[in-house]
Simulated scan of single mutants.
Amino acid sequence: MRLPVLFILITVSLDAMGIGLILPVMPELIADVRGTGLNDAALWGGILSAAYAIMQFGFAPTIGNLSDRFGRRPVLLVSMAVMALDYVVMAIAGSIWLLLAGRIVAGITAATHSTAFAFMADITEPEKRAKAFGLVSAGFGIGFILGPLLGGLLGDLDPRAPFVAAACLAAANVVFGLLILPESLPKERRRAFDWRRANPAGGLMQMGKLPGVRPLLAVMLAYQISNFVYPAIWAYWTQGAFGWDAGMVGASLAAYGVAMAVVQGGLVQPVLHRLGELRAVTWGLMLNTGCLIAYALISQGWMIWVMIPISAMGAMVAPALQGVLSRAAGADQQGELQGVLASLSALSMILSPLMMTQAFFWATREGGAIWWPGALLPWRRG
C-alpha cells in the first residue's frame, strides 16, 4: 500500500497548495484582468478567497457521501482530473468572472481531502487511524509550505505560470493514480447516496446521532477556529508588534509549517502510544492554549522562533481527534464523517479571519485607547 498512500499524500498536498499557490500572484493577476489598481485587486482577492472556502464548506459532505456510494478511487481520480483542467482555465482566464468560476471549481475539487482521509480509514485498523490521519495532515502541511513558495518563484516569471505548473502536477498525479490506486471500499460496504445527508447541515445532524460525537465535533470546530489565527493575523501581528518585513513573515510561517509536518508525520504515533487518543487531545488543547497566551505575551521577535517548535506540538490534536471520531463511525460512513470534518475546517477558514482580523483592528486602531497586537496585554507604541 506504499504507492497508494504516496498518491494520497500528493493529492492532499495539491489540495493544500491550491490555497497558497495563488496568494503571491493574485494581486498582479487580478489587476491584469481587471485593468485596475491594487485596492480593487484586494477587494476581488477577498471575494475569490471566500468563494473557495464557501465551496469547500458546501461540497465536502457531498464529495464524502459520493465516495461512500461509488468508492474512493473514482471520486479521487475524477476530482483530480477536474482540478487539472480548472488550473488550465485559470491560467488562460481573461476576465475576473472566469477567475471566480475557477476558484469556485477549485474549492469543490479541493474538498476531496475528505475522501483521502476516508481512503486511509479504509486501509488502516481503527486503533492505528490517528497515525494515518497524522501522515495525511503532514501532507497538508507540505502543501501549505510548497504552495506559496511555488507561487512566488514561478510568479516572478509570469503571474499565470503557477497555474500551469499546478495543472501539470495534477495531471501527472491523475496518471499516477490510474496506474497504482486500488479501490479501498468494497461494494458490500457501500451505501445509497442520500441528498439529505450530502450537505453540511444534513451530514452534521447524521453524525450527531452517533454516541459521543456531537461534543467532539464542537471541540474540533473550536480548535480549528482558534488555530487559524496563525494564517489569519500572523503577518499583521508580527509587523505591528516587531516590525517584521515580508521575508521574515514568510520564513516564520514556513518554519511553522515544517514543524507541524514533522509533528504530524513522525511524532503523533509515539505520543498516542504513550498518552492514548483522548489524553493526547486534552494535553494538546492545553498546550495550544498556553502557546497562544505565550505568543500574546512575548515582547521580542526572537522569542517567536523559540515558540514555533513548541506550539507545533499542538498539531497532534487534529489527527488524535479524527481517530476518536473515526472509530465512532461505521465502515460505510467514513466518507460522510470526513466530509463533515472538512466542512467544519472550511467554516473555520471563513469565520476565523473575520473574528481575528476584527480583534486585531480594534486592538491596534489609530486613536484607540490601547496598542495591543497580541490582543491580550496592552502594548505601548514604539
Results as ranks from 00 to 15, higher is better:
residue 1 M to L: 07
residue 2 R to N: 11
residue 4 P to Y: 10
residue 4 P to T: 12
residue 9 L to G: 03
residue 10 I to D: 01
residue 10 I to M: 15
residue 12 V to G: 05
residue 13 S to D: 00
residue 16 A to I: 00
residue 23 L to F: 13
residue 24 P to W: 01
residue 28 E to C: 00
residue 28 E to K: 14
residue 29 L to D: 02
residue 29 L to F: 08
residue 29 L to K: 09
residue 33 V to K: 07
residue 37 G to I: 02
residue 37 G to N: 08
residue 37 G to E: 03
residue 39 N to R: 14
residue 46 G to L: 10
residue 46 G to K: 11
residue 53 A to P: 05
residue 60 A to V: 04
residue 61 P to I: 13
residue 72 R to P: 08
residue 74 P to S: 13
residue 83 M to G: 00
residue 84 A to P: 06
residue 87 Y to M: 12
residue 92 I to N: 01
residue 95 S to Q: 13
residue 97 W to P: 00
residue 99 L to D: 11
residue 109 T to E: 02
residue 109 T to M: 11
residue 113 H to S: 12
residue 120 M to H: 02
residue 126 P to Q: 11
residue 130 A to E: 04
residue 142 I to N: 06
residue 143 G to L: 06
residue 147 G to S: 07
residue 149 L to H: 03
residue 150 L to S: 09
residue 152 G to H: 09
residue 158 D to R: 03
residue 163 F to N: 03
residue 167 A to T: 06
residue 173 N to L: 14
residue 184 S to P: 01
residue 186 P to S: 07
residue 190 R to T: 05
residue 191 R to N: 06
residue 197 R to M: 08
residue 200 P to D: 04
residue 202 G to H: 07
residue 206 Q to A: 15
residue 208 G to Y: 09
residue 212 G to W: 06
residue 219 V to C: 08
residue 220 M to N: 12
residue 235 A to Q: 09
residue 239 Q to N: 14
residue 239 Q to V: 12
residue 247 G to Y: 07
residue 248 M to P: 00
residue 248 M to T: 15
residue 251 A to D: 10
residue 254 A to K: 04
residue 263 V to E: 07
residue 264 Q to G: 05
residue 273 H to M: 11
residue 276 G to F: 11
residue 279 R to E: 12
residue 283 W to S: 05
residue 285 L to S: 02
residue 285 L to H: 03
residue 291 C to I: 07
residue 293 I to H: 00
residue 294 A to R: 00
residue 298 I to T: 03
residue 301 G to Y: 04
residue 306 V to Q: 02
residue 307 M to P: 05
residue 310 I to C: 05
residue 323 G to D: 08
residue 324 V to A: 03
residue 331 A to S: 13
residue 334 Q to H: 10
residue 334 Q to S: 10
residue 335 G to Q: 08
residue 341 L to C: 09
residue 343 S to A: 15
residue 347 L to N: 05
residue 365 R to Q: 14
residue 372 W to M: 15
residue 375 A to F: 07
residue 375 A to S: 14
